[in-house]
Design a protein around this nucleic acid. Structure first.
Ligand SMILES: [Mn+2]
Ligand SMILES: [Mn+2]
Ligand SMILES: [Zn+2]
Ligand SMILES: [Zn+2]
Lengths: 134, 134
DNA sequence: TTCATTTTTGTAATCATTCTAAATTTATAC
DNA sequence: GTATAAATTTAGAATGATTACAAAAATGAA
């Protein structure tokens, strides 16, 4: 289990440094679509010398190597997701939580996309989550 | 035709100042999902005293009054759209153009959204547009 | 060890957006 | 009309996320 992440990083052409493993661990354990700052604030508690630039560098490397995707559901802060499969997101305007929406990939194939070559797909909803609807 | 826009603004509770009319005119005529800077660079040619802050103010007012929507398909610059109907967008990674995708609203009603109260829906695709696929 | 390469760090720079207070314009009262 | 109040616009400073950059530290091979 503890050995899985280094191998996964290596499989994506990423040398598994301690910091990189910790960032990836954060993404897969929390599954909270964090911002750079959320990751930094958590990891800096155990890695006091951690630089926020390092978190940026690592996340950009993950994006480049296809190990994570960027979520732009928040207008002024990039969020990250280690789940690179095709799925949608919902952001609650009250509790600010970002939830996964499991969607049928077939529903994503729109006829109006004929002629376009698709590299990325993003589906975002915003509103109130079930708990915040009280 | 020239009188329609002031009335539309008034209907949305917006006093139709000259600047506001010009910004709205830009949005509906160009239909290019512009950034603040794109609007500013165009309008400042005829309104030399125009401030970029004014463009920000006006667009934020439009968003607040439901006269336009914010498009976050570009990671580092907000885009705006005067078409507030439910439709998707495609951004070409080559020519940087943003295209409308007319989609069947029925297809947006996912069963996994039960319990969520939806205020906004965004569907973005990125890749190559038909022309850039050569 | 030595030396080269990679990774991390701290700080400065960039850039989009917001804040703020003054200036200008527009509307209202007299 | 003028005076006054309110709304709009403006310029520049402040903010905040992200990137650039160059030095420091860690890693790994010879
Ligand atoms: Mn997700
Ligand atoms: Mn559109
Ligand atoms: Zn909520
Ligand atoms: Zn194109």
């Amino acid at each position: 289990m503890i050995e899985r992440i280094p191998n996964l990083l290596r499989a994506h052409g990423i040398k598994p440094s301690h910091h990189r493993i910790k960032v990836y661990e954060y993404l897969v354990e929390k599954r909270n679509h964090p911002s750079v700052d959320m990751i930094y604030q958590e990891l800096v508690q155990n890695i006091p010398t951690l630089s926020k630039t390092t978190v940026y560098n690592i996340l950009n490397l993950f994006l480049e190597k296809g190990l994570a995707v960027m979520i732009t559901i928040d207008e002024n802060e990039t969020r990250y997701d280690a789940d690179t499969s095709l799925h949608g997101h919902f952001r609650c305007n009250n509790c600010q939580g970002i939830y996964d929406l499991r969607l049928d990939p077939a529903a994503w194939e729109w006829e109006s996309l004929d002629g376009f070559e698709i590299n990325e797909s993003h589906l975002y909803f915003k509103g109130l989550c079930p708990e915040c609807c009280h």
